[in-house]
Design a protein around this nucleic acid. Sequence first.
DNA 1: GAGTTTGAAACT
DNA 2: CAGTTTCAAACTC
Length: 705
Amino acid sequence: MDVVSPDLNSLLPDEIMDTEAIEDIPHSHPDSTSVQSEPNDDTPVPMETDTPMASENLSLCSNVTSTEPTQALTTSAATDTILSISSGSQLPMSISTTSSSLLTLKPGMATSIATTKTTDSLTGTSISTSGLQKLTAPFAISAANHQIILNKVASSQATEAAKSAGTQPQVIKQEGQKLLVTAIGKSGQPIVLQLPHTGSKPGISQMSGDPKSQAPQFKVVTIGGRSELKPAMGSAGNQMTTLQAQQLKTLQVTLIVLTITLSESLNTSIQSISGKKIAISPLKTPSKSVAVSGVAGSQFKTIIPLTSQPNVQQIQVPGSRFHYVRLVTATTASSAGQPSGPSTSSLQTAKPMVVSTGAVRMSVPIVPAQTIKQMAPKPLTSAAVVTTTQTQQRLIMPATPLPQIQPNFTNLPPGTVLAPAPGGGNVGYAVVPAQYVTQLQQTPFVTLASSSGFPASTAIQTQARLPLNGLSTAEATSRPRKPCNCTKSQCLKLYCDCFANGEFCNNCNCNNCFNNLEHETERLKAIKTCLERNPEAFKPKIGKGKEGESDRRHSKGCNCKRSGCLKNYCECYEAKIMCSSICKCVGCKNFEESPERKTLMHLADAAEVRVQQQTAAKTKLSSQISDLLMRTTPVISSGGGRMPYTFVTKEVLEATCECLLEQAKKAEQPQVEAERMILEEFGHCLMRIISSAGKAKADCASINC
DNA sequence: GAGTTTGAAACT
DNA sequence: CAGTTTCAAACTC
């Protein structure tokens, strides 16, 4: 297996060398493909935020005994769906929504997954919050733009048996054991997960709508390689029928290969990756695709077919936290993705799909684009596939048994691309902000792209601020990232907010900026320097406080001396948190009982409410005026139409009075001020009426003409 | 918009 | 670790 270069390793924190994650893989089952779906709150993906988040993961796993909870070896943070599929005693396919529900597909269940780009929806009754799943009813899962429809074909007998077991497993014919996942592929190019021993091609439920979707283009996920047979054992003690047991015996219980074809030519893709740095860019980059194949045991391969352009591809993932992404090209072509035509696999919304095969764990984030959630820091233990939203690109983070490649997923800033090992082949690390997945959910801009394909400046279109300084994701994303104005730091020091947040500069006002693709070397060096100085330099400053204390507090505390910690100079105040005992501030007024703080907060709240009220009142007035104008047929006279006052009807008067009253309520002492505000508002109302009337007349005149 | 203030980051 | 300098954001006018 290829390893990273010594230089690269030197860049990595010590935690990278930690092999615990690898050791977590049971050695007693070297060829076991059992997959354990970790709880959402314990996903290995290194997420920096403290806020737990619902996740949805898709995991493929085999050889999972009924007593073993399905654990997603690799999970993606943010709002992800966990779809775990395992063979062996069970073939649980769990899809957990934000409510952590899981959907489980039993091994005997013929399952086809077809995507339909419609709306986010999850139908079905299979919900499991634990590692073990149960499938209780037919269901169709569809997420925005990457819907997954599970069409079960269960035998009544098996169903009955399952019902008797209380789990209602869905059992299908063996030859029907196939999983068509189009959610991670291009629309109409479903990914087929096929269990070996079926002896025949699965009846693929192919996604219609894409003429390019053809059977040969489908990627087949082969689950097999292990002759060992395990009786299907439901977690709830579900009893399998004899037929089912036989069918299960025919199954290759080891998940050997998971191939996801998302692009055209696999070979081309591999070659393009070989020896190149992979970058994730928020830009939408068509024709980018990723093929991932997992091999049971210590072998696996990850293919990230990108453009054939032999260029360094930059990872640009907006956010302040990071994910490490190790990019490894496939070493075997047996299960390599097939060329799927020039069109790339498209995925408008990505959800994490975790594929685990013993030591191999891969994650394909399939994230609802509309969902915005915070994610908890998760250590990335092995492989992960980051699927972009709408951009049809994804980043694959393959699991690796290499002990020397165990990056600390919490320290390196995002956007970092770790060069492949010299002569080591196509191995590299990519550092992705931990909120990457969240961003995927939030925005569809993350892409895998070649740097040569587009300028760096455009490659970094979006840099949504992730939970930063205690701000929630929603808060952070509700406002655009502020451009930096660095002039001397080259944006390679923590002075630069962009750099500190692990973002590339984009649309900034900085001078001599090195925080971009063109200066990747310098950037990496700067990151290294920062980490040497402070290993937690890129970690969030606002974290959870001690037990019993406030949920959030500054990790280091502030050192304010003159601001009283009541201005944005103070990092605590800026993060809207109170100073804690670890702060070294002087004259702090940013504490719970501080009257100054309360006053500030009150004023801030009042201002916010005022703005909202004004907006609401104006909106209502405008709406009423518009409605009135729509309902009132203007009397067009030869003189040019109605006079403005004729528009002052009862409805308009009422709306105007509401606005005035609102101003009166908001106005504070002195009375003169209240009068002034009311008069101003009245003037505004009159102007709107006149304007609307004028517009109406103009419209009528135009109509008459 | 220019200048000042501020505190974190960087440096010694 | 402490003191100083540098830096860019926040703030003021």
